[in-house]
């Protein structure tokens, strides 16, 4: 990490002619000067060295780059960092620590909700938000009556997690992990 940070060609946050951008990431403020082409994903990984957020397809199809922006999940590969001046961003590094895992991280470990682990940060951040979206009453494609509150069923979780692909197909265990956290809340 330090070798990257000190490499003369890779001075993070210092690009001539860049757009000054304030990002609050995991409760820490950063001011970066960014080429406008920098996606939020690349700003997190290449400039702030928060490599927990993964680059999978880089075109919004796989969900590995999912982060939480102002409380809502988003594909960080399909948004420009400069569009997020002043925004509050949570990555997997800000969710829990190795010593004090977030309940969703703990449940993924306990239920073996991954194999290779590459999609896991995105899965976990998405899962945290899915439970929030169900609690907030946001409907999904499988919600019955639109005027009733959605329930936290397997079908609802599957549908709402469809933007996170797992090539190892750990889906049954991912559902089990999310169900456990959901059960603990209700």
């Amino acid at each position: 990490m330090s070798s990257i940070a000190t490499h003369p060609g890779r001075q993070p946050g210092r690009q001539p002619g860049g757009v000054p951008t304030r990002l609050r990431v995991n409760n820490r403020d950063h001011v970066l000067e960014l080429d406008p082409r920098t996606t939020l994903l690349d700003a997190l990984r290449e400039h702030l060295h928060l490599t927990g957020t993964k680059k999978g397809c880089d075109q919004g199809q796989c969900g590995a780059c999912t982060v939480i922006v102002n409380g809502r999940r988003a594909n960080s590969c399909l948004t420009l960092a400069v569009m997020h001046d002043g925004d509050d961003i949570t990555t997997v590094e800000g969710l829990g620590t190795p010593e004090a895992l977030h309940p969703m991280q703990k449940a993924f470990v306990e239920h073996d909700g991954f194999q290779c682990g590459y999609c896991t940060p995105g899965q976990i951040l998405s899962a945290v938000c899915v439970l929030g979206e169900i609690e907030a009453g946001i409907p999904s494609h499988v919600t019955g009556a639109l005027t009733a509150a959605p329930t936290c069923s397997d079908a609802e979780i599957r549908e709402r997690m469809s933007g996170n692909i797992c090539r190892c197909a750990a889906y049954p265990n991912i559902i089990a992990a999310i169900r456990e956290v959901a059960g603990g809340r209700s």
């Binding site: 919004g60 969900g63 999940r73 594909n75 998405s126 899915v130 933007g163």
Partner: peptide
């Protein structure tokens, strides 16, 4: 306008619909 809610949630993913 239920047809509008239904159509929107039939498209894309949760992450994309948020943006």
């Amino acid at each position: 306008y239920g047809v509008l809610s239904r159509a929107i949630v039939a498209g894309a993913s949760g992450q994309l619909r948020n943006r």
